[in-house]
Design a protein around this nucleic acid. Sequence first.
DNA 1: CGCCCCATGTAAACTGTTACATGATTTC
DNA 2: GAAATCATGTAACAGTTTACATGGGGCG
Lengths: 177, 177
Amino acid sequence: MSLRFALLGLLADRPHTGWQLLKQFEGSLAYAWPALHSQIYPELARLREAGLIEQTGKGARGAKQYALTDDGRTALERWLRETRPSRSIRDDALLRVFFLWLLEPGEAASYLDGEAVYNRELLAELERIRDTEQPQTPTDHAYRLALDYGIRVVAARLEWAEASAALVRSRGAAEIG
Amino acid sequence: MSLRFALLGLLADRPHTGWQLLKQFEGSLAYAWPALHSQIYPELARLREAGLIEQTGKGARGAKQYALTDDGRTALERWLRETRPSRSIRDDALLRVFFLWLLEPGEAASYLDGEAVYNRELLAELERIRDTEQPQTPTDHAYRLALDYGIRVVAARLEWAEASAALVRSRGAAEIG
DNA sequence: CGCCCCATGTAAACTGTTACATGATTTC
DNA sequence: GAAATCATGTAACAGTTTACATGGGGCG
């Protein structure tokens, strides 16, 4: 369901080829809704069949350019305005935390160190993007809001991982000492 | 894949019936890896078939109690120690932010207000749990780490939503004024 | 006895990943 | 002309949701 609207949303800004859409999903959208070409191309065919998008041209090497139709824009705006976001979450890294008690304190702390490293590097990358790109268009401003979200959430995860690793180490030391 | 290990992880603490496992997935695990009975019961049958769990008793009304086998514990510890968490994320609420430029500033701000309300209420609920339950066992301590993670991340999302709503309103006012 | 909750399962539809498959254009 | 990248598609499999289906036990 969300993939369908992600495609419509990208096409609302300007026409794209399937390949260009794929690159968007590999870029900034990867943090919100990742998708591979094997899912994107069939979905584009279905959206076209449903009249929500139309093919507006051909590029080199068989590329197909699509644009949003009026029906597509209506469907997209209805999704944004009239439906509530799904709150369903799947977070493998968090799931593992529930079972950290199975490991020795030192090993559990190492796991948390790894989470800290991952989030520290991701945070640096997101901050680099924030500090080098200047939003111009309304689309840019929306993407910047999404980037700010990522920065705040990843910073929170980093702080949690650092604090938790320290906590686990101090509890482990107390048991031994 | 993760569902399998989530079940093994719960059974590592103590034996559970399928129903009890289902209640765990509806409770704290819902924030990390939600699952329904239609997925849990077949997966338990497969884990039993594979020798990773065994049925240790029968409860009232046809309830089946399962416990982890030695093979199951080995598989669980290998997952925790030797595999890295998947970083794949699907966040419908974040996806919508990329397309907020489609709405009028007032409507976009309303969407962000809704995100603030949702996260404010969830944060209050998580803090209530933190302040009423006192961790005792190692299992409790791991659950508490997961709860702390939720509190930090939800607090970050709340702050982002409030700041973003204010930002969008001020930009909208600047355009009009 | 009727209702609610406990308790387990299966089937169909949908979504997402991995693997297979092909061909065009650019670059070295 | 070989390799890398652009560009599109299908097939098989795995994971998830929704719907269908059944029966036991406690409570009023």
